[in-house]
Design a protein around this nucleic acid. Structure first.
Lengths: 216, 216
DNA sequence: GCACGAATGCGGGTCAACCCCTATGGGCCG
DNA sequence: CGGCCCATAGGGGTTGACCCGCATTCGTGC
């Protein structure tokens, strides 16, 4: 496995809420709160500086609200996952957040119950929602996500083989390591490259580095 | 050119010194102070969190001195360059710092004069020293660096070709771009891989990423 | 139960990558 | 001037990467 450490930034104007979230987050050995902010503009600065894996932000932030902040974060750092805390259990809000690039949506009332699961989900680059989200919206989004995922995501086996290739192993070595035929390795390699629209081994290595599958 | 923004962390137990350094640093449009610390242990935490390009640290830090801190930083984040501030114009100190992995050495008395030049040098991954460094030590180090460089560094042509390979170009494409024969491209590629002791294209791409020849 | 995707495997082919060796012309340095 | 490195180029060969299609097995879901 690659390093599973998640670097997290919190943004909420209530110190007490940050404190609570931080203590919950810190209970996980691989999660680190590496920055905090009390308003939206500051949050953007902090995110810019520390480049976290995940930003947990309040929807109602001073200076720049959660929606604008989400857009700004995803624009500059698309690989930072955004989890939004909100009091509004409204699906128009959720829909806006989703299209802005947020991948997590957590009602404050249910935060303590779902926070760990939500961060866990975002760690795996999966979406997470709480609240009375209407089935139709959820379906629509899940479908959208599934379409996108099937276009970009690899099966576990493909990912494993991509990792070994990117580490410099030859197909023959990979076949030996995984006790597979070279043909199988070639099939997975080809499937991964087709899905990701990569045309050379070099592209594949850069993909692996960008996506933290390997260390450069 | 790649993004020339340099993310910098400062560590000094004197708030006033950090303030001064920060204001000098910030006068450069592409340099950002993204973290500060008042002692060595805190500095290590901050560096771990923000992963800066450059750490500017005091030699005499509480909790963990500049030498230990340099070792710790280079161990975890070898790509972070370390610039050490010190009052001691002693070459045994400098020698220790150099072997620990620091690449910059600045006397506090001359700091304001040389700070920008030092950061500029480290940005380009070149060493920088101030003070009455003895000619012999400097010679020894320069020689060492030269030996290391000649062992690992590529000729301009080889570097150019390594870059193109790592960007995903085929030998044939490279030959067309540079108006060379494929054989020549192969020769340079083989020479580079022999020098660097790399055995696959994937190794070469990782080398290129680690050494900032390409963006991942 | 049938459809579908994931994982596994094979054959046969093309082309690129890599290996070893050789060679030449230009520039630089002692 | 005589090495020495660099950039250039080639011959000739082996191996690996990638393309096409096809098949089986297994589990999940409708």
């Amino acid at each position: 496995m690659s390093s599973p450490v998640r670097r997290i930034v919190l943004a909420d104007d209530h110190e007490a809420i940050r404190l609570g979230v931080r203590s919950v987050i810190s209970s996980h050995p691989d999660w680190r709160v590496v920055g905090e902010a009390g308003d939206g503009r500051e949050a953007l600065e902090v995110v810019r500086s520390v480049r976290p894996d995940i930003a947990i932000i309040d929807y109602s932030l001073p200076m720049m609200n959660g929606l604008e902040l989400t857009r700004a974060i995803k624009k500059e750092l698309p690989r930072t996952e955004v989890l939004v805390f909100t009091m509004h259990d409204r699906e128009d809000v959720l829909a806006e957040l989703l299209t802005a690039g947020a991948r997590g949506y957590l009602l404050k009332s249910e935060a303590s119950k779902h926070l760990l699961a939500a961060v866990e989900a975002l760690s795996l680059r999966r979406p997470y929602f709480s609240g009375n989200v209407s089935q139709t919206l959820l379906d629509r989004f899940v479908e959208m996500a599934a379409r996108e995922a099937s276009a970009t995501a690899l099966t576990p086996r493909e990912r494993e083989i991509v990792q070994l290739i990117a580490e410099g192993r030859l197909n023959k070595e990979i076949a030996a390591i995984l006790e597979l035929s070279i043909k199988t390795v070639e099939t997975h390699r080809a499937a991964a490259m087709r899905k990701l629209d990569l045309k050379s081994t070099a592209d594949l290595v850069r993909y692996a580095v960008r996506n933290n599958i390997i260390e450069p």
